[in-house]
């Protein structure tokens, strides 16, 4: 679905949510839950944690929508990613020491959680994940948002509260850094 179509669909569903339509919120969940889970899972060390934070993201966004008396100024998905990212940051702040970001069970996790049957895909994903967790958080975020979830530069800029130019530079640097880490392995 093209970005504009997604935004239009979101607006329609959000106005139905505002009118108390439970099914509309369900549809938003159906569309975004796998993406939010994926985003969080790539950044945290366990599936259970990713699941908890994903659920928390939706609860938090519901609370946010309830409080709003006027239309939200950014896209719903942008907001959702911002909430998810903040929850990850909060989680690590609460821990007394930094969790190991490279988790042992990611390969095992992939066995039941990868669409498609290609061994090569599984190896690629594992390789990219290993490189991703070595680069800084901002770089991880923009790589996932821009290349994996295909958000636009303006959307990413709103999430990160940066200018579009700054986001473009960030994407360029993030990709270069990731590439360096991937080439190290080779």
């Amino acid at each position: 679905m093209a970005n504009l179509e997604i935004i239009d669909k979101e607006k329609e569903l959000l106005s139905r949510v505002a009118a108390g339509d439970r099914d509309a919120f369900g549809q938003l969940y159906d569309f975004y839950a796998p993406k939010i889970f994926r985003f969080i899972r790539l950044k945290v060390g366990s599936q259970a944690l990713a699941e908890d934070l994903s659920s928390e993201s939706f609860l938090r966004i519901w609370e946010y929508l309830k409080e709003q008396e006027r239309e939200i100024e950014e896209s719903f998905r942008g907001l959702l990613y911002r909430v998810a990212r903040n929850l990850i940051v909060d989680y690590y702040k609460r821990k007394s020491s930094q969790e190991i970001l490279i988790d042992d069970d990611f390969k095992e996790f992939l066995e039941g959680h990868l669409i498609g049957d290609d061994l090569r895909v599984s190896e690629d994903v594992e390789e990219v994940h290993r490189a991703l967790v070595k680069i800084k958080e901002e770089y991880q975020d923009v790589i996932i948002w821009y290349y994996v979830d295909e958000l636009s530069v303006p959307e990413i800029a709103k999430i990160m509260d940066k200018s579009q130019g700054a986001v473009r530079v960030l994407i360029h640097r993030a990709l270069k850094t990731l590439k360096d880490h991937l080439e190290e392995v080779e």
Partner: peptide, 28 residues
Amino acid sequence: IFRKIKNLQRIQPDASWLIRQRSFLLSE
């Protein structure tokens, strides 16, 4: 590299977790 990054799109959550959470969220 782009191909490898795009393959991350194939990561998916547990289908049963998705459904359980949906019911839980909507009831909450």
